[in-house]
Design a protein around this nucleic acid. Structure first.
Length: 137
DNA sequence: GCCAACGTTGGC
DNA sequence: GCCAACGTTGGC
């Protein structure tokens, strides 16, 4: 199993919105970036990811699971764009802020810290464990 | 709200 | 195929 990180502006699609969808999950649509799309194509059902609130909060708030592998993005006719479906698994006991990630030397290699513009990104096993612990899980 | 970084588009 | 122009993202 691999680990990922999904970034979303909470004013557009928040953790609460994701939770409200329950086990049915929801398309992670609207991605128009090849790198991000390619990562989604690599995802398998059961892979886990962090749910990150960009802009205002800048913090990792919960854990999601891939519940459908890459398929055409229903929000566009353009067949270049695929997306996966994800569902909420559980919230972190306490959110892990970008600031905390930047302050932790062990996370200095995290894509989140180094490439702020990539909206879907891989997370290593080590990074996953560290952030989970910081989040109280 | 600004602006830096980055990705994409399109003219040549 | 290069590169300038433009648009978007997201931290500050």
């Amino acid at each position: 199993m691999r680990y990922w990180l999904f970034k979303s502006e909470p004013s557009v699609w928040s953790w609460d919105d994701q939770v409200a969808k329950g086990d049915a999950g929801e398309e992670w649509d609207g991605v128009r970036n090849y790198q991000a799309r390619n990562f989604m194509r690599e995802m398998k059902i059961g892979d886990r990811g962090f749910f990150y609130h960009s802009q205002k909060d800048k913090e990792i708030v919960g854990i999601v699971e891939v519940c459908a592998e890459a398929h055409p993005d229903s929000t566009t006719e353009d067949d270049r764009w695929d997306c996966v479906d994800i569902k909420a698994v559980e919230p972190l006991k306490s959110a892990v802020t970008l600031e905390m990630c930047k302050a932790d030397e062990r996370l200095s290699g995290m894509v989140l810290v180094n490439n702020s513009r990539l909206s879907v990104q891989p997370v290593t096993q080590d990074e996953w464990d560290i952030v989970c612990k910081m989040g109280g899980l």
